Simulated scan of single mutants.
Amino acid sequence: MKRITQSCVALLFATFEALADGNSNFEVLTNLETGPGNVTATANGRIIMSQHQFYQPQYTVVEYKDQTLVPFPNKEMVAADSTAAIKLDSVLGIRSDSNGMVWMLDNGMRSGVVPKLVGWNTKTNKLQRLIYLPAPIAPKDAFVNDFALDLNHNHAFISDPAGGNNAGLIVVNLVTGAARRVLEGHASVIPENIDLIIDNSPIQVKTATGETVRPHIGVNPITEDLNNEWVYFGPMHGLSLYRIKTADLINESLSKTELAARVERYSDKPISDGISIDKDNNIYLGDLANNAIGVITPDRRYQQLAQCPRLSWVDSFSFGSNGQLYAVVNRLHRSAILNGGDDQSKPPYFLLKVKALAEGLPGR
């Protein structure tokens, strides 16, 4: 892998005027031969990535180390109470915490297995937590995708776009392993009737009957502020970002109606995938239709930080140990799955470093 440190505009135009328009707000840290899924960075500087299942990778999780990718974990995962090995199937969501745990959300879709949340302790190099998400917590059409971690309340909050109208959030107690499905079918999680069109081509999925349809995907982006007060989320195919107080989300005594009433619309947003947040509550996201990186500032206004042809489906923002903000480019709209069965997605894919407006929490 070749390390690249120039911004897109510097590479394409090499002019001072181009650099002045904001595209110097990111750099390509390295080229990738396989399409990445999500990225996280540990407090001690390790960079861990899932590899997107749409590209049928050999390893579903890898570590970027010495300018190359190595399988992660680097040893077989065995549950503490069992001699059976735990296999990772289709990890997308991945986060790390301040205790040295890397949490991996395995949707199980490649092999049709039960989704699970897996916690790997990087200090002991052992499997520490395994939480299964069976039906009806994760229904038959579940696509558990991304999540936010909250060690203050010992919970994880998972986004599941599912089939669209049954999209919802999954609230997981990391201590007991108990999980609840909440806000299913609520306006804040179901997709809006809008198409995603990138470079003049619509996202299309080929059905079992050979027809092509334009999918509308429900809740996907999700994050929590650094004070563990608000959880922010919204449908991928949606132009609104919502939030709810963490205390309400973990309050099991609230009825469905009461919980739904606690959701508030926060701001406008573009069609977007993964998001992250910094200490000043700037929310970073990929502006998919415009090949751009954007930010929602604390005044609840959206603006672009950078726009470039290289920013071709920017996904999964995550802060590192020294204030770095990482993201990936995976060109999912050119994959066979989202391009009507025609695979036009080619490497290089990218691991990015984004110039953040403020520092964030490593792993978030």
Rank of each mutant, 00 (worst) to 15 (best):
A260H: 10
A260G: 15
A260D: 11
A260F: 13
A260Y: 14
A261S: 10
A261E: 15
A261F: 08
R262Q: 15
V263A: 02
V263W: 06
E264W: 03
E264L: 09
R265F: 12
Y266H: 15
S267V: 01
K269M: 05
K269Q: 04
P270N: 00
P270R: 14
P270W: 10
P270M: 09
P270V: 08
I271C: 01
S272W: 10
G274L: 04
G274M: 06
G274I: 08
I275M: 15
I275G: 00
S276N: 13
S276W: 06
S276T: 15
I277F: 01
D278W: 04
D278S: 04
K279W: 10
K279F: 11
K279E: 14
D280E: 15
D280G: 13
D280F: 13
N281L: 11
N282A: 02
N282E: 13
N282T: 07
N282C: 05
I283N: 00
I283T: 00
I283P: 02
Y284I: 05
Y284W: 10
Y284H: 02
L285R: 08
L285E: 00
G286M: 07
D287K: 05
L288I: 11
L288F: 09
A289Q: 15
A289W: 04
A289H: 09
A289F: 07
N290H: 13
A292Y: 02
G294A: 03
V295A: 00
I296G: 01
I296E: 07
I296T: 08
T297Y: 06
T297C: 10
P298L: 02
P298Q: 03
D299K: 12
R300H: 12
R300A: 13
R301Y: 11
R301T: 15
R301W: 12
R301I: 11
R301P: 07
Y302T: 06
Y302R: 05
Y302D: 04
Y302A: 00
Y302G: 06
Q304R: 13
L305D: 01
L305C: 07
